[in-house]
């Protein structure tokens, strides 16, 4: 699939799902309904962008769910009680992410194992901070997440902002191009004089940054935190990136697609509850939707290849 079609399928699947939801529940077609549908999608979209930063450099982050949970715990405790210390901890967490990126590159470690190990570390830290669910959301994030802009609900505005900013950062800026090049051909980047270790550290730091945003937003929505609050984000974020047209290797990613992928997954949950599907099948249906979209994507790319072949022959 080339660049132009990459974004088409995620947009179509989101539109299809949205149409189905509106058909089943016409009342969702309102300011309030949309806000309700997409509210919890904001932190998922941010976590998906974080995952995308890692997948951009050909790695995969299996710790993002525990990391977001850890950030949520910090937000509900330190960031609320002693804001300066809270900010310092979150900055240190981003630095830790950058350090991991450098370590993974310098020692040529498998990212899947290192991040799996880190998921224990973040999980442990989160348990230390909040052994039982609790904490309080800082007032400013609470009011930021519940602000009611005119015409379009906050959740939609936030998602458009996230997509726009990350698109500009990754697809339009020179740094973004370099970062994607690390995923495409790290050797070529190194040969042309760039430090791949620094670039990889940068990509990981960006992932840490978006992970922090995700955790803070999540607490803004839920008002309290616990150590397991975002564990499912690991799988959701990987699925979101893939649904959005990203690939595992080659630095082929799409920030706008990733946000749309995250929205699709979040919407899938609401769609299924409108279908009155038993909660037992919720997770399974998300898996089925994922498989379905990938199957359609295969059809797209095959059709595309046939056209190209026909064009060449004709």
């Amino acid at each position: 699939m080339n660049g132009k079609y990459r974004i088409l399928l995620p947009v179509l699947s989101l539109a299809f799902l949205l149409a189905a939801v509106f058909y089943l529940q016409p009342r969702a077609m309102s300011y309030f309904g949309l806000n309700l549908l997409f509210n919890l999608a904001v932190p998922i979209a941010l976590a998906t962008i974080a995952q995308m930063m890692i997948m951009m450099v050909n790695d995969i982050d299996l710790s993002i769910g525990t990391f977001v949970s850890f950030v949520a715990c910090v937000t509900a405790t330190f960031l609320h009680d002693t804001p300066v210390l809270g900010v310092a901890i979150l900055l240190a967490a981003i630095l830790a992410y950058a350090g991991l990126g450098a370590l993974i590159h310098i020692r040529q470690l498998p990212a899947i194992v290192v991040t799996l190990g880190m998921s224990f570390v973040w999980g442990g830290l989160a348990v230390l901070l909040l052994p039982s669910p609790g904490g309080t959301a800082p007032v400013w994030i609470r009011s930021l997440m519940t602000v009611k802009p005119p015409l379009v609900p906050m959740a939609v505005v936030a998602c458009v902002l996230i997509a726009g900013i990350s698109h500009f950062l990754i697809m339009r800026s020179s740094t973004g191009t370099l970062l994607r090049a690390v995923g495409g051909n790290a050797q070529a980047v190194a040969r042309s004089g760039w430090s791949v270790a620094k670039l990889k550290a940068g990509a990981y730091a960006l992932a840490g940054f978006f992970g922090v945003l995700s955790g803070v937003c999540l607490v803004g929505l839920t008002t309290s935190a616990d150590a397991n609050i975002a564990l499912r984000y690991t799988l959701l974020s990987i699925a979101g990136v893939i649904l959005g047209g990203g690939e595992f290797t080659g630095g082929k990613i799409s920030p706008v697609g990733a946000v749309i992928g995250a929205l699709t997954l979040a919407l899938a949950g609401s769609f299924l509850s409108f279908m009155r599907l038993s909660p037992d099948w919720q997770i399974g249906a998300q898996g089925a939707i994922l498989i379905l979209v990938l199957a359609v994507r295969l059809l797209f790319s095959r059709r595309n290849r046939k056209w190209k072949e026909a064009a060449q022959n004709g």
Partner: peptide, 9 residues
């Protein structure tokens, strides 16, 4: 991953 969602359900 997606198959595991189905098994889990």
């Amino acid at each position: 991953l997606s198959a595991s969602f189905l098994y889990q359900s």
